[in-house]
Each structure stands twice: as C-alpha cells, then as structure tokens.
C-alpha cells in the first residue's frame, strides 16, 4: 500500500493528513504552529507518520503536497499548491455536494466557489486585516478571559444580541471591554461578536456564489455560535462536514498528492 501526504502549514495551526491509495484517511494531526513554518510542518508530518504502521518515516510517502500560510516554506514537499485550491478539494472529498465554502482561518477569510470536480470556480479573500478571522475570536475570548469553546457556548445562551459596531479587531476589543465595564450581559456581547463576524462572512458567501447552503472550514468552523449566527444573518444552511473542518486544507493537499502519485 502506498501513502500520500498533505501538509497545511497555517498561521496558527499546522495540519497534516495521510491518505492511502483508496483515499481513506490513514492519519491526521492538528498542532499549534510555531514561528517557523518549516519546523511546524516537519513536526506535524512526523507525528502523522507515527500513526501509520506501514510507514517508518516521511520519506516513504509516495507523494507529498504542501499548502497553507507557509506553503512556500515547506521545502520537503514534492509540490506546493495554493491553500484555496486545497480547501476546495478537501471539501469536495468530504462532501461532493458542497458548492460554496467560507474558510475562516487564523488570519484570513476566504470565500470559495467549487466546481463539480473540486477545482476552484472563483474565490475572494480578505488577508489584509484580522477582522472576522480566528485571530479576532482569540482576541475577543481573551477579553472575556475564556477559552474559545467556552466563548462559543456562552454566545449560544444569549436571548438578545448586543451589536458590536466596530469591525476592526483592535476597536472591537475596546468596545467589548467598555460593554463589559457597563455591566451588559456577557452572553449577549458574545452573541454580538459572533453576529459581527457572520456579517463579514456575508460578503465572502456572496462572492463564493452561495445561495442556499455553505460549508464552513478552518478552525472557526468548530465555533457553534458562529454557525448559528451565520445561519441567521445569511439565511442559508451551514452544512456540517463529516470530517474535521479544520483539516480541509491538509485533506485537499493529500488528495492532490494522491491524484499525482496515482498518476490521475
């Protein structure tokens, strides 16, 4: 059996997926990124290899594709492919019915329209500011002195929503601290934060051509409060992917590696 690897060196998390010849996931790893993406990617790959009994080390992979924030800094990959292409392919592998994706990464947001073969039809990207990204949520959760899952759960308990008007992460943090200082209910502020990000996703969803449904990928896809807010704001269904949505970039990279390695 031959194995194929995909390594997604993201800005906050590095992910790695190994597929077998049939396209089944043989191993997957998600770990916090270090400052050096090469070391992060290497560590994630080594970790993934230990999960496959047939593999002794990463050099035994038939083909390896790198992607992500540090995609040009994965020197041991056979090939590097853009994270947009990899996310599209990853989602296509996970659920071929999905046509539109919003990927909320650590420091960028992407809207991707997917063709029937998993290739990219169109995309839009905000990589110029942290508004509406994973970094935004981290900053807000820090302001609440909570972990991200706690923050997400808190937002779901709100009966009302306090709108957050600032889009900029820095200004939004100030606004949130002021609201907390005024004694406003924490869960309603949290719901307001989720709602403000959902509104930003509206533009991306529009650009991805989403009409009735959209899939969320990236670490923020695990935020149930955000999913709830997106469904309310965009008035479309958020599709639950059967595979961890944070792995989509790595999965797409691994699928590309499989196609290349199998000579498809």
């Amino acid at each position: 059996m031959r194995y194929f690897g995909g390594c997604d060196a993201g800005s906050t998390y590095t992910k790695c997926v190994i597929l077998d010849e049939d396209g089944k996931i043989a191993a997957s790893v998600t770990m916090k990124s270090r400052i050096n993406p090469v070391l992060s990617a290497q560590a994630a790959l080594d970790d993934a290899v230990t999960q496959v009994s047939d593999l002794k080390n990463a050099s035994e992979l038939a083909y390896l594709v790198g992607t992500g924030y540090g995609r040009n800094k994965v020197p041991f990959a056979d090939e590097n492919i853009s994270e947009i292409s990899c996310h599209a392919m990853g989602v296509h592998v996970a659920d071929p019915s999905v046509k539109a994706v919003i990927d909320i990464g650590g420091q960028d947001v992407k809207g991707i329209a997917i063709d029937t073969d998993g290739t990219v039809l169109d995309f839009a990207m905000n990589d110029k500011c942290a508004a509406g990204t994973g970094r935004f949520f981290e900053t807000m959760a820090n302001a609440f002195e909570m972990s991200l899952p706690e923050f997400s759960r808190l937002s779901l308990t709100a009966k009302n929503v306090i709108p957050i008007t600032a889009q900029c992460t820095v200004f939004a943090e100030s606004e949130v601290i002021s609201l907390v200082g005024e004694g406003k209910p924490m869960e309603e502020i949290a719901a307001g934060i989720e709602m403000s990000v959902a509104k930003r996703c509206f533009v991306m969803a529009k650009k991805a051509g989403a009409t009735d449904s959209v899939a969320l990928t990236g670490g923020c896809a695990k935020n149930d409060g955000l999913k709830d807010a997106i469904e309310k704001v965009l008035k479309i269904r958020v599709i639950d992917l059967a595979i961890d949505p944070q792995l989509m970039g790595a999965l797409g990279a691994a699928e590309f590696a499989r196609q290349k390695g199998m000579g498809a």
Partner: peptide
C-alpha cells in the same frame, strides 16, 4: 498594500481559478 500584494492577488487567481 504593496506592489507585491497586488501581484499576489493576480497570481492566486491565475493559478487557482
């Protein structure tokens, strides 16, 4: 947004789409 940033947006589109 640097000149390189502008080029990167085009590069992404040309390669990805």
């Amino acid at each position: 947004a640097s000149r390189k940033d502008m080029r990167t947006e085009v590069n992404r589109y040309m390669r990805t789409v």
